[in-house]
């Protein structure tokens, strides 16, 4: 309770909202990354074969735009994350190129979790 009150008065307090900003941002990027990769898996492995083999186009008609929005959301969240600073050029390149690699979003999960862990340890130090 005392910690919360202190955090409210001083947004930079170690246990206040600021300490959590980067961790939450990385979590958001991870979630969007999973959604982007999963909608592509569903589109390519289920909706497209169903369309071509059984002539049922509604799956891809529905999933196409959903994946499009998920792709844009990933690119935007990656930009927002990188604009927060602390990223090397190679990491930025990796973050954006993943969006163009099929199922690449899944490769982000472990990497982003490790980064969040490293960040938390740095903050604690």
């Amino acid at each position: 309770m005392a910690t919360d009150a202190h955090a409210e008065k001083n947004p930079h307090h170690r246990h206040g909202p600021i300490a959590d900003l980067e961790r939450k941002q990385l979590k958001r990027l991870e979630v969007v990354s999973i959604i982007e990769a999963t909608t592509l898996v569903l589109l390519v492995l289920i909706a497209a074969p169903v369309r071509h083999v059984w002539g049922w186009p509604y799956g891809s008609k529905l999933l196409g735009p959903i994946h499009g929005i998920a792709f844009l959301a990933y690119i935007w969240t990656a930009l927002q994350t990188v604009a927060g600073g602390g990223w090397h050029k190679r990491e930025v390149f990796r973050l954006f190129i993943v969006a163009f690699v099929p199922f690449g979003g899944y490769a982000n999960i472990r990497w982003l979790r490790e980064r969040a862990k490293t960040f938390a340890e740095t903050e604690q130090a």
């Binding site: 947004p11 900003l21 980067e22 941002q25 935007w76 930009l79 927002q80 994350t81 604009a83 600073g85």
Partner: peptide, 19 residues
Amino acid sequence: LSALHGVRSGRIRRSLRTR
């Protein structure tokens, strides 16, 4: 405009974090 919003919100986060 979307990119500006992403960059601005990222920079606000950075300023808060790095003081």
